[in-house]
Amino acid sequence: MRRGLAVLALSLLHSFALSLFAQTTRNGVGPEQRYYAVHSFADDWLVYDEAAKAYVPYLPEIHADAPAVSASIDLESNRHYQLLLYTDTDTYVFINAALKKQLLGGRWYTFSIDSLYNAYRQPRVLLSIYGSAGVAGKQMIMGYPKSILQKPVVLSDDNLSVRPRTFSVYQNFFGLGLLFLLAIHALLFSLYRRAFLVLYDPRDLFALRVRDESFLINRPLSRTVLLFLLSLSFVMGYLFLFVQSRNVNVFSSRTLLLDQQNFGALLLYYLLVSVLVFLSFLGKYLMLQVVGSLYRFESVVNIHFFKVVQSSLLFFTAIGFLATIVIFNGPTIENLTNYLLIPFTVFYLVRLVLLYLVIRAQAPIKSLYLISYLCIVELVPLLIGVRFAL
Rank of each mutant, 00 (worst) to 15 (best):
E50Q: 05
L199W: 11
G175D: 09
S128V: 08
Q82M: 15
V277S: 13
L227F: 10
I113P: 01
A265Y: 12
D259A: 12
I376F: 09
S231F: 02
Y81A: 13
L179G: 04
F240E: 02
A52D: 00
L257E: 03
Y339W: 04
T87I: 03
F228D: 03
L197A: 12
R34I: 05
K284D: 09
G106Q: 03
F167D: 12
F21W: 14
A361T: 11
L18H: 10
Y48L: 07
L188Y: 09
T324G: 15
L232W: 03
Q150H: 11
Q150R: 14
D158G: 10
F297W: 03
L99V: 13
R296T: 11
V290G: 03
Q362D: 12
G330T: 04
G106V: 01
F347I: 06
L379G: 01
L354P: 01
L18Y: 07
T345C: 08
A98Q: 13
F206D: 00
F189K: 14
N262M: 02
P67N: 02
V29T: 15
I376D: 01
A17N: 12
P67K: 05
G30A: 03
Y35E: 01
Y369P: 06
Q82R: 09
Y81I: 02
Y81S: 09
H14P: 02
S190N: 13
L191W: 14
P364C: 03
L216T: 04
I371N: 01
L8M: 11
D74N: 00
S15D: 13
V69R: 00
A265P: 12
M142F: 14
I129Y: 00
A52P: 01
F328E: 14
G385P: 00
S214E: 12
Q289N: 12
P331V: 01
V353Q: 10
L288T: 08
V300M: 07
D201H: 11
Q261W: 05
H14T: 15
S222Q: 08
S253Q: 03
P152V: 03
S372R: 09
L83A: 07
L84V: 07
A119Q: 13
I325S: 13
N218C: 12
S147V: 07
F305K: 09
E32K: 12
L286H: 10
R387F: 15
A52W: 03
V243W: 05
P145A: 13
S280M: 00
G237I: 00
